[in-house]
Measured scan of single mutants.
Amino acid sequence: MDPFVVLVLCLSCLLLLSIWRQSSGRGKLPPGPTPLPVIGNILQIDIKDVSKSLTNLSKIYGPVFTLYFGLERMVVLHGYEVVKEALIDLGEEFSGRGHFPLAERANRGFGIVFSNGKRWKEIRRFSLMTLRNFGMGKRSIEDRVQEEARCLVEELRKTKASPCDPTFILGCAPCNVICSIIFQKRFDYKDQQFLNLMEKLNENIRIVSTPWIQICNNFPTIIDYFPGTHNKLLKNLAFMESDILEKVKEHQESMDINNPRDFIDCFLIKMEKEKQNQQSEFTIENLVITAADLLGAGTETTSTTLRYALLLLLKHPEVTAKVQEEIERVIGRNRSPCMQDRGHMPYTDAVVHEVQRYIDLIPTSLPHAVTCDVKFRNYLIPKGTTILTSLTSVLHDNKEFPNPEMFDPRHFLDEGGNFKKSNYFMPFSAGKRICVGEGLARMELFLFLTFILQNFNLKSLIDPKDLDTTPVVNGFASVPPFYQLCFIPV
Rank of each mutant, 00 (worst) to 15 (best):
G228C: 05
R108F: 05
P260Y: 03
H396Q: 07
M1I: 00
V8K: 09
D89G: 09
S12E: 04
V352P: 00
V208H: 11
G32V: 00
K273Y: 10
T305D: 00
P63A: 06
Y358L: 09
Y358P: 00
D414V: 06
E281L: 10
I181T: 06
K399G: 14
V5D: 08
D349P: 00
I39V: 14
C435H: 02
G79A: 00
H251S: 04
R108L: 06
F134Y: 13
C435I: 02
D2K: 10
F194A: 07
S336T: 15
N204R: 04
M255I: 14
L449M: 13
A173M: 04
D373S: 05
K160W: 09
T469V: 11
L449P: 02
G171D: 09
G228R: 06
I244R: 01
F482G: 13
M406I: 12
Y308L: 05
F407P: 00
L445S: 05
P404A: 14
C164H: 09
K232M: 06
T320H: 09
A238T: 03
T55L: 10
H353M: 05
L413V: 06
T320D: 04
V5M: 15
N41Y: 00
I387V: 08
D143F: 08
V177M: 05
R307C: 09
C266H: 15
T159E: 07
F110N: 11
E72Y: 09
T159K: 10
N41H: 02
L295R: 02
L245R: 13
T299H: 13
R124E: 01
F401K: 00
Q484G: 08
V153A: 05
L413W: 04
R21L: 11
L7H: 02
S365K: 03
L306K: 00
D265G: 02
D414R: 06
K84Q: 10
I269M: 11
S303D: 04
N418A: 14
H230V: 08
N196G: 11
L366E: 01
I289Q: 13
L313N: 00
L201Q: 06
R26L: 12
R410V: 09
G416C: 14
M136C: 15
Y379W: 11
L71N: 07
M426Q: 00
S95V: 06
L77C: 06
I60H: 13
K200H: 11
P30K: 00
N176D: 05
L310Q: 00
E122S: 13
L234V: 08
S140D: 09
G40R: 02
A106Y: 08
C338A: 11
M271A: 11
N455V: 05
E274F: 08
T301I: 15
Q146P: 02
P163F: 14
T320E: 13
R108V: 04
R73M: 06
Q146I: 15
V153E: 03
N176H: 02
I222V: 14
A441S: 06
P260E: 06
V352M: 10
E326T: 01
V208I: 15
Q324I: 12
E93I: 13
E246R: 12
F412S: 00
R186S: 05
T302P: 11
V248M: 05
G96Q: 09
P227G: 09
E92S: 09
F401N: 01
K190I: 10
K322W: 05
L237I: 12
L453P: 02
L7A: 12
I178T: 07
P402D: 12
T302F: 05
G137Q: 15
R377H: 13
F187S: 08
V64W: 00
F263T: 01
P37D: 00
S393F: 01
F114V: 09
S162M: 14
S242D: 11
N176L: 01
D265Y: 00
Q193D: 11
A161Y: 08
G98W: 10
M345S: 02
D349C: 15
I60R: 10
G62P: 01
K235E: 10
N202H: 15
K200M: 15
A430I: 13
G332V: 04
S95Q: 11
D165K: 03
T348D: 01
S53P: 03
I19R: 15
I169W: 10
G417S: 09
H316T: 06
D143S: 12
F263Q: 00
F100A: 15
F282H: 03
I488H: 12
S209I: 09
P367M: 04
R433N: 03
G40M: 00
N286E: 04
K84L: 06
L313Y: 00
Q146D: 08
S51R: 14
K270D: 05
L311C: 07
K121S: 11
L440T: 08
N457R: 10
D224I: 04
R139K: 14
N218V: 15
D341R: 03
N202I: 07
Y225I: 10
F69K: 08
L9I: 15
P382C: 03
R186W: 07
S242C: 10
E92I: 07
N107A: 12
A86W: 05
D262N: 06
V479L: 15
Q192M: 11
R26D: 13
L237D: 04
P402G: 12
P31E: 05
T469K: 07
S254P: 02
C435A: 02
T348R: 01
G137T: 15
C338I: 10
L391F: 04
I178S: 05
L87F: 07
K48V: 07
D265E: 04
E281I: 14
G439N: 09
R357S: 01
I19D: 03
V153Y: 02
D143T: 10
V83W: 03
N398G: 14
Q184P: 12
F134S: 13
R261T: 06
T385W: 02
H251D: 00
L71G: 14
P174A: 15
F187R: 08
H316P: 00
Y68E: 09
C164A: 09
F110S: 09
K200D: 06
G91R: 07
D143P: 07
P166T: 04
F267G: 03
K28M: 12
L294V: 07
E354V: 02
I452D: 04
E444P: 01
T386P: 07
V370P: 05
E142V: 07
A297N: 14
L71R: 15
I222Q: 04
I359F: 06
T304H: 14
P382E: 05
L77M: 09
P227D: 08
E122G: 07
K118A: 14
Y483M: 07
A369I: 07
T392G: 07
K322C: 08
P31T: 05
F451P: 04
S23T: 13
S115P: 03
V50R: 07
S24A: 08
R26A: 13
L233C: 05
F376I: 13
Y483N: 03
D89A: 06
P464I: 12
L361I: 14
P3G: 12
R206S: 10
G62E: 01
G384I: 00
I178G: 04
K48H: 14
I359G: 07
V394N: 03
D224V: 04
R377C: 05
R206L: 09
Q340D: 12
A430N: 06
F226A: 11
T299G: 10
R132G: 12
I39Y: 05
D293L: 03
W20A: 09
L445R: 02
V473L: 10
R157E: 12
C13R: 00
S162A: 14
V370R: 00
I284V: 14
E81H: 08
T371G: 06
I42H: 04
I331V: 13
V355L: 10
E405Q: 13
G70L: 04
S303V: 06
E318A: 13
E85P: 06
T210G: 13
F263I: 05
V145G: 03
V288M: 06
L391R: 01
K383I: 05
D46V: 04
G439P: 14
H344C: 10
F419G: 02
R433D: 03
Y483Q: 04
A441T: 07
K315R: 11
S254T: 15
P317M: 06
F69T: 07
E154C: 07
T167L: 07
R157N: 09
G439I: 08
P409C: 04
H411M: 01
L102V: 14
L170S: 05
T371P: 05
N218G: 09
